[in-house]
């Protein structure tokens, strides 16, 4: 899905809808860009489509948690999902690597495409999918293993490395990419749980990027961390987007403003607005998003 023809086609459509939106004014309740597209695109950057979601709805038993979500997520960007608690942003995130499969009462309708392939298709193996979509959670949760093994376990399981030297190299690279190498290089064989909270979270990131996924999902990755560790992780996200597509859920709007290229605002299971982050914070198109961003509720 990264061919320029499609890209051009979409850009053309964009410009037409953007002008329509402009006519209706910034406070219109229903901006109508093409389905799933942000109201405004970042200029001057060549962005390829990574994840395409159309009409996605999800139910926990009888309760509908996601209602008709459509969104395009671009490669090598950071996309932040914001919204009040219970708005469905984490649930949505978990649809991207089919983590909701682990909950048997869940039913899903709609399309989630990863690099052009329908992830919910009958023939799709969720293990193969999850190799391409890494995940980092709210609370740092190293495996009950050494720092080294935390990183090396999954690659070894996937037969990504055969020789010990390759494995060492892979571990070092992942830890370097996660900005943790200098802090742990002398104690690789100590338990992962011996690190501080911020280091543990970076270890979890190293663990996720060690399998070289395309997309990294982060579910409020800094909510359990102190401000300094949070800043380190935010810097890291900015670096990592060169190699990975990052989708992050956050409670913290300043964080979204700082790290995200695009921001999607969720409310009660619906995606209310999706826009380039600068636009979203400077000039939200919907009343609900504006109210949330300006702190009227949340």
């Amino acid at each position: 899905m990264n061919d320029t023809t499609l890209q051009n086609f979409q850009t053309q459509q964009d410009s037409s809808t953007a002008s329509e939106g402009a006519v209706r004014g910034p406070y219109s309740e229903a901006p109508t860009p093409d389905k799933g597209q942000p109201v405004t695109r970042n200029e001057s950057v060549e962005e390829n489509l990574s994840v395409r979601v159309r009409d996605l709805s999800l139910w926990y038993g009888e309760h509908q948690a996601l209602d008709d979500i459509s969104i395009d997520i671009f490669a090598n960007t950071v996309t932040a999902l914001i919204g009040p608690s219970g708005c469905g942003k984490s649930t949505f995130l978990r649809c991207l690597n089919r983590m909701n499969d682990l909950i048997s009462s869940v039913s899903i309708k709609g399309l989630v495409e990863m690099d052009g392939r329908d992830v919910n298709a009958r023939g799709m193996d969720e293990v193969a999918l999850r190799r391409r979509v890494g995940m980092v959670f709210q609370k740092p949760n190293p495996f009950p293993k050494s720092i080294y093994e935390n990183v090396a376990y999954a690659p070894r399981m996937h037969d990504m490395v055969s020789r010990k030297a390759d494995q060492d190299e892979l571990v070092e690279r992942a830890l370097r990419d996660a900005g943790l190498w200098n802090e742990v290089k002398d104690k690789l064989y100590e338990p992962g749980t011996s690190l501080s909270g911020g280091q543990q979270q970076r270890l979890c990131i190293a663990r996720a990027i060690a399998v070289r996924p395309d997309v990294i999902l982060m579910d409020e990755p800094t909510s359990a961390l102190d401000p300094i560790s949070t800043a380190t992780i935010e810097d890291l996200m900015d670096k990592l987007k060169q190699d990975f597509t990052i989708v992050t859920v956050t409670h913290n709007m300043q964080q979204a403003a700082r790290v995200a290229d695009y921001t999607a605002f969720f409310h009660l299971g619906e995606m209310i607005e999706y826009n380039a982050t600068k636009q979203m914070f400077a000039n939200p198109h919907t009343k609900k998003a504006e109210d949330y961003i300006t702190g009227r509720y949340g």
């Binding site: 983590m99 999850r130 190799r131 949760n141 663990r207």
Partner: peptide, 11 residues
């Protein structure tokens, strides 16, 4: 969360 993070690595 521990379980999910392992599944999340494609295990």
């Amino acid at each position: 969360i521990t379980r999910e993070s392992a599944y999340g690595l494609g295990c």
